[in-house]
Write a protein that binds this DNA or RNA. Structure first.
Lengths: 258, 258
DNA sequence: ATATGTGAAGCTATTCACAGCG
DNA sequence: CGCTGTGAATAGCTTCACATAT
C-alpha cells in the first residue's frame, strides 16, 4: 500500500510525522489558553508542561513546522497560534455532518468546542423519520434519504458517524460516494473505505479495555488471582510505573481490503 | 507506586507492547463476532482482515500472549476469546463511575457496549442538585458531594470524566484521592495525576483537527490556496494515499515527570 | 545567560521472510 | 503443503545533549 516513493529529495521536504500532527491540536489548545490570558511569549518548557508533553518533544515537533521561536526568549504566542492553525488547516471553515442523532449524536451536536475551532455543523442526519425536522442543538434533523444532496449542497468533506454499529458501514459508503473524504467514526466497527479516505475512530469500550488491562496489572502485584487455564508465571513486566501520559495513543493501524 | 525494577529475569518476561495492548480489544471484537456465528477456527489472515490490520502484525501481537494457534490450521475462536479476555482483565467485573451527566455523560450511560464487556456502571454523579435522584439509563444520578463514599462503597477503580473542562481537574483529584487509579477523560483538558494513575483521553476536537490536517493536504494537491504568510514550496509528502487506516492512532506516549 | 533547533543515539513498532510444526 | 511463530531488517518516534543564535 501507500505506494508513493520518497518523491521529494531535499529542501526540507514537508512531511510532518503523524505523531507530531496528533500533538499539534494539544499545543494549539494550550496556546489558545495563553493567548486568552494575553501572555505574549512562552518557553518550550512552559508550553510543554501545559500540553502535557516534555519540552524536547515539543521543540522537535515545532522544528518540523519551521523556526518559529527566538533563542534565549521562547515563542510568540499569537504567532504560533496562527502558524499551527494554518498548518492544521483551521484557517478555513470545515462544514461537518453528523449522522445518527441518538444520545451520542445529540451530545456531539451540542458540543461547543466544535464550532469554535474551524468546524461548523452543517447538518444533522438521522434515519428515523420521526426525528426529521426536530431541532437538536438548534439545527433541524434531516432524513437519511437526503444525505447525498446535503453533502453536495454544503460541500462537506468531513463526516461524523454516530449510528449503531450495524448501520455504520452503509452510512460510510454513502458518505464516501457523495464526496466525503474524512470520517470520524464513533460506531464500534471497522469501516472499510477506498484509498484516499481517512478514517479515525473513537471507541469508548476499547479505551476502557486498555485501562482494564493496566488496572489488572496494578492489582496483580504479587497477588496471584483468577481461576485461569494453565498459565505459567505472571512476571509483570514491572515498571510500567506510569507515564502520567494520556490520550488515545491507542493506535489501530493497517489495511483491510474486504 | 511504580518503581519496581526488572523484577523477573527470564522465562518469557511478560511485557506486552503498548501498541499490542491497544489492538487486543479490536481482535476481541472480531473474534466475538465470529464466535456468535459459531465459526470454530480462523486464520491470521482472516482475523486480521476482520480487525483491520495486517496478518503479520496480528501474529506478532499474538506471539506476545503465547502460542495459541495451530500451524497449518489457525486459531480456535473460543479459546482465543478467552485468552484475550483474560489478558485484558475482562474476566472480572469492573465497576465504573461516570461523572458529569450532561449530554455526553448520558450518552455514555446509555451506551450498551459498556455493560456487555466486563464493565458495569456503578454510579452516575453530577454536580447539579437538580439532577440528583433523576434516573438516567435506569440509574439514579447522585450528587458530587457523595463522590468519595460512592467510590469506596463500590470498590470503583475506573472513573469516566464527562464534565466541562473547567471542572475536570478537580473531579479528577477527588477521584484519585478516593482510590480511582484509571481515568477516561472526555473533557478537553490535560489532567495531571500522580504516578501510578492511568489517564486516557478521548477528544472530539483533536480528532477533527487531525482529519482537517489531512483533508487540507488532499486539497492542496497542486492547488495553491490560502492567503498565508511567506510559506515555501508545498511538496506534500506524496501518496499519503491513505492507509485505509483508522482509529486514534493518535498516539501521545511517553513519560512526563511533572 | 538563556532557550531554541537539531544531529545522533536509543527505543519501540512494523514488516519481511522463512524455519518449523501440524 | 499451509499457516503459525519469530528472528532479522526496517521504519518511525522519543530523548539526549549541545552548538547556535539572540
Amino acid at each position: 500500500m501507500a505506494t508513493g516513493r520518497t518523491h521529494r529529495p531535499a529542501t526540507r521536504s514537508r512531511g510532518i510525522p503523524e505523531a507530531t500532527v496528533a500533538r499539534l491540536p494539544l499545543y494549539l489548545r494550550a496556546l489558545t489558553a495563553l493567548s486568552e490570558r494575553s501572555v505574549p511569549t512562552v518557553s518550550s518548557e512552559e508550553l510543554a508542561a501545559a500540553a502535557g508533553v516534555n519540552s524536547a518533544k515539543l521543540r522537535k515537533d515545532f522544528s518540523y513546522l519551521g523556526s518559529y521561536g527566538t533563542r534565549g526568549v521562547g515563542y510568540d504566542v499569537e504567532y504560533l497560534v496562527y502558524q499551527i492553525s494554518r498548518e492544521l488547516g483551521l484557517t478555513q471553515d470545515w462544514p461537518v455532518v453528523i449522522v445518527g442523532i441518538g444520545n451520542l449524536g445529540a451530545a456531539l451536536a451540542n458540543y461547543g468546542g466544535f464550532a469554535s475551532r474551524g468546524f461548523r455543523v452543517a447538518a444533522l442526519i438521522d434515519a428515523d423519520p420521526a426525528m426529521a425536522g426536530k431541532p437538536v442543538a438548534g439545527i433541524p434533523v434531516q432524513h437519511t434519504d437526503d444525505l447525498e444532496k446535503i453533502i453536495r449542497d454544503n460541500g462537506v468533506s468531513i463526516g461524523v458517524i454516530a449510528t449503531p454499529a450495524g448501520a455504520a458501514q452503509q452510512v460510510c459508503d454513502r458518505l464516501v460516494a457523495a464526496g466525503v473524504t474524512s470520517i470520524l467514526n464513533f460506531a464500534p466497527t471497522v469501516l472499510s473505505v477506498p484509498d484516499g479516505v481517512d478514517v479515525r475512530k473513537v471507541d469508548l469500550s476499547i479505551e476502557l479495555q486498555i485501562l482494564a488491562f493496566h488496572e489488572q496489572r496494578k492489582a496483580g502485584e504479587e497477588t496471584a488471582m483468577e481461576t485461569a487455564v494453565g498459565d505459567a508465571a505472571l512476571p509483570v513486566a514491572a515498571t510500567r510505573g506510569d507515564s502520567t501520559e494520556q490520550g488515545p495513543d491507542g493506535d489501530v493501524p493497517a489495511v483491510m481490503p474486504a
